[in-house]
Structure formats: structure tokens, C-alpha cells
Design a protein around this nucleic acid. Sequence first.
DNA 1: AACAGTAGTGTTATGAAATAACATAACGCG
DNA 2: CGCGTTATGTTATTTCATAACACTACTGTT
Lengths: 161, 161
Amino acid sequence: MHTATCEHDDHDHPGLTGQALRRALGAAERRCAETDQRLTAPRRRVLELLLEGDAPLKAYDLIAAFGEAGAPAKPPTVYRALEFLERLGFAHRIESLNAYVPCRLEGDSHQAAFLICDCCGAAEEFEPDFTAQLAAAKGAGYAVESITLEARGLCPACRKD
Amino acid sequence: MHTATCEHDDHDHPGLTGQALRRALGAAERRCAETDQRLTAPRRRVLELLLEGDAPLKAYDLIAAFGEAGAPAKPPTVYRALEFLERLGFAHRIESLNAYVPCRLEGDSHQAAFLICDCCGAAEEFEPDFTAQLAAAKGAGYAVESITLEARGLCPACRKD
DNA sequence: AACAGTAGTGTTATGAAATAACATAACGCG
DNA sequence: CGCGTTATGTTATTTCATAACACTACTGTT
């Protein structure tokens, strides 16, 4: 695992609150209804935590933050919720970070691409264009189900110091 | 972690032996010499195991296989060797598998792309063309250091059953 | 050759991430 | 209602990775 760690919590990502948070959760609710999926309490709670977060969250951060009065969740509760959220395209796992983010894009496709800052830890999702790679896969005879791309480097803010 | 697991050890990847193995190790030795890097015994041993392997190897597989007479290595020995091999571009970590493969391509660039079969576990490295993604990153103001792409699906052989 | 500095290794212990397995509850429907 | 399916709760364990520190081996200098 890389690290350049020069400490910047500033120049943060959004991290939804209040109105916007409720709207996002509502949208998820609706998308679940459309496909007869159930956004149950633990699933909703984990999604809420991800949406509130301003950076990729580790599973055990979620476990710790899950319960109201300092009562943590048990690991399987959170891992199962994450699995569900990933399956529906509401969240992504960032493999090189062992961490999770809410999906910031439209579409529920099983494609994701991230720019990850080695300095401040921010992870920005961007619209992936996998044309070239899908062509390569096709050439090799592979039937691709999902693609993830993770680019590591320095975000604009961290480049400047 | 996904799985479709329909068991196929057939249609395997190469997995070097004898002549070819020695040639690959020799090449690594030479490339180290060029940059004043030392391919020490544990590093060489881990690279050898990776080259011999016909599929991505887990760190603890390497740990177990490391020693001659069933004597396993200690974790840090192998993890340190892997770190070195990755740094020099001799090996790649496949994040979505928690596993390692020897680099099958020329060039020591910090770019890697894999087609991973969810059925047989094979991982095929292919020449990455990240033009589109690098353009996106540039547009976002990121200074990219390294990129990894992992595509999951079914390999040609597994598609047929 | 003696030395100092750096890079690499050995070893013990511990920490972090994820899952297995099984019991219980809630939902959807004939 | 009663049955199958989906989801949750809970305990325990497994798998993956690193911290910390002592020791050794190479490198270049004088």
C-alpha cells in the first residue's frame, strides 16, 4: 500500500447533510422499489454513513459509527449491507484502500473509476470511458462483467504544497 | 469478493520452468544491476515462486512455499520482497484478489491492467491503453502516479461451459 | 584494514479486514 | 395461515498485513 501522507483534511469532498442527504436516501429508496429490492434499516444506515462521509470509509469505521449510542455494529451486519449496496450500484469498494464510497454518478453500471490522492486520501469518482479496455478484452475473448480502475496520484490542492 | 466458481484448473497459464524460468530470473538480475538494485535471496525466491505459478498467488501461499523443507517464511519476509518486486515492476498486486502475479509485459511502468476470470481464477495481464483515463485525470487537475485496472468476467475457456 | 552509514533481513507480536456457520426474525404469497 | 425465501443477529475464526526492534551485510571513505 502506497503512502505519501502529507496531511490535508482541508479541500474536502462534499459529505451530504440534511436536505441533500434525505434526498439522496429517498432516491435510493425509489430505485430499490423499482426493482423490488428492500432498503432495510441496516442497509439504509450504512448508505447514510457513506453519504455523510467526506472521504472513503473503512468497513470498521462504519462498524464503529453504525450504532446510535456508541454501540457498534457487528462486522457481518455492515459487510452484508455493503455487499447489497455494491450490488445495486449505490456504493463502490476502492480496492487499493480497503474502503468504500457512495456512488457519485448516475447509472447503476458495474463500472467505476477513481482518482485517489495519496496525500489527502480524497477519492474522486469520474465517468469511466472503458472503450479501449473493453475492446482489448473482447480481443482476448473475455466476457467482461465489471471493471474498476484506480488511479493514484496527487489531487489539485495537494500538488500545490 | 465475487465468485462464480465453477472449477477449472485446466486451460492454464504458462507457469515457467527450467530454462525459461532461469532466463526470466536472469533478466530480472540484469535489470536490477542496471539500476543498482539488489535481487537478494528472498526477493529472488519470491519472484521465482511467482514465475512458477500458473495463477495469482496469495501472500500466504508464498509464505508457505518459500522454504525448502516445508519451513515457511515469516510474513514480513515475503511482504517485503513483494514490495520490492512491485516497486521495480517485476510483480503486480491484484487488489480485488489479494494476490500477486509476475509482470508478463515489457516496460517497468506503474500501469497494469488485468482480465480476471471469475470462474477459473486466471488473471491475464494486457497492455493498458489509459489515454482516455489520463485525459480525464488531467482535466480534473490530478497528477497521476500509477493506474491499475481490473476487469472481471469469464475467460474464453470458461464461457463455453 | 577499520570505520561509519545505509539497506536488507530475522523474529516476535499484534493489528486490521473479512467471512463461516448457525440460530432467529420478517416478508411475500398461495 | 403456513411455507419458502430473504434478511438479520451473534459467536467465533480465518485471512491479510504491519509495527517494532535487534542483527547482518554491503558500500564507500579514510
